[in-house]
């Protein structure tokens, strides 16, 4: 298989590069290879879009979980503060 054909066929490598790109800079060669692949591969274009969406959604999930009321019960909190006071008085 020619070098170019390998790039065009290798979705495994392309999705790897998509992930790498979302957290760091690709080398010049890697970024050219990814562009060539994505130009001809609609599957990996979908993957790329969805990969970004997933990153954003997961971020939002974590953010929305940080509500002021976390569901910690009052007894636990009261006892915890008492433990802290105890330590402070040691």
């Amino acid at each position: 298989m020619s070098y170019l054909k390998k790039i065009i066929h290798n979705c495994k490598q392309a999705t790897y590069l998509i992930e790498k790109k979302s957290t760091t800079r690709l080398s010049f060669r890697e970024s050219i290879e990814l562009r060539i692949h994505l130009f001809g591969c609609s599957f990996c274009r979908i993957f790329q879009k969805q990969s970004h969406i997933i990153n954003n959604l997961v971020k939002e999930l974590f953010k929305s979980a940080m509500q002021p009321d976390s569901g910690l019960d009052d007894t636990f909190k009261k006892e915890l503060q008492e433990k802290i006071e105890e330590e402070l008085n040691k």
Partner: peptide
């Protein structure tokens, strides 16, 4: 101010931990 730690931060820290 450790006297206020639980009321100020316990919920936040708990949420932080539970999501992870």
């Amino acid at each position: 101010n450790p006297h206020q730690w639980v009321s100020s931060h316990a919920d936040y820290l708990y949420s932080f931990a539970i999501t992870r």
